[in-house]
Write a protein that binds this DNA or RNA. Structure first.
Lengths: 150, 150
DNA sequence: ATCATACCTGAGTATTTTTGTCAATTATTC
DNA sequence: GAATAATTGACAAAAATACTCAGGTATGAT
């Protein structure tokens, strides 16, 4: 029962994007890669998926980069994960919108369905905005501790 | 976000075990393998793990097999899954009982922790007994439909 | 005793999924 | 038209998963 690193990276990258963003200026993937210490090429793939799912918008050319497609308070964590990972449903036979055809036999079906719903609901209850605020809070307390590091 | 087939098999096998059980007579792994259409050898591995975790008891020799180690109403689904799969925690850095050391930086930590708790709580809220009763219910309605099949 | 049954163990393998890398292209700004 | 940065698709390494196999060990029945 593991979330892929892909999904974890995507969420972290989205927080980074939001934090690095300053009015009107797109954030390059390079900056995010540096901040999060991730492979540039790999991040590119993730952002391509995020873009296709309308989580971010891209701006090409010099000075370009990525921007949130909507307000942070309107982006839910489950949407971010959906963009890069196929599914939050815990078992594969339930993929195609609920009907695996084994209804009569399958005793455990209800469990997995219930579990999938809990996971979905929980991740849908958290917005990017909340993560950003938490991040800012942690940053300030952390900065107090590491003053004069450089 | 997938549960391993291992975990799925284990839960199904436990239901099978409980359904096949008749007073005093252990159920052989072979019967379960047949009923669930799983590899005998693979099931053996799973039951070895279930035994080590005191979910089932084994009886060796002819006429032997496996028996529930406790009442079905006292066996929770999360225990079954724990026995065969390492973890219900969604990200690896949180393995060792919660402390990954990246507390200050890690903005997403709270999400994964919360998610892990939801998953755990949900699976802990279901007992084997409940699954058995549901299975019996489905069996009777299903039998009505497939009368005279053989 | 010995034989058949059925659990028990650990090593090994094949498959799939995940996690990336690389090379080449396209769009945009200066 | 040169530099920048997103965009794409193919490919590859590595890890996890899902098994198989070849033995062993305990027990009951004859």
């Amino acid at each position: 029962m593991r979330l892929s690193t892909k999904a974890q990276y995507a969420v972290r990258a989205m927080v980074s994007l939001a934090l690095l963003y300053e009015e009107g200026k797109p954030v390059s993937i390079k900056d995010i890669a540096k901040k999060e210490d991730l492979s540039l090429n790999y991040l590119e793939q993730l952002f391509a998926m995020l873009r296709r799912n309308q989580i971010v918008k891209s701006v090409r050319g010099p000075g370009g980069g990525y921007v949130l497609a909507r307000d942070a308070c309107d982006i839910r964590v489950d949407e971010i994960i959906d963009s890069v990972e196929e599914t939050l449903v815990p078992v594969s036979c339930m993929e195609k919108n609920g009907e695996c055809g084994c209804f009569e036999k399958c005793v455990t079906r209800n469990i997995w369905q219930g579990l999938g719903e809990r996971i979905r609901n929980f991740l849908a209850s958290i917005t990017l905005e909340e993560l950003i605020q938490e991040a800012r809070k942690k940053m300030t307390t952390h900065e107090k501790l590491s003053v004069g590091k450089a």
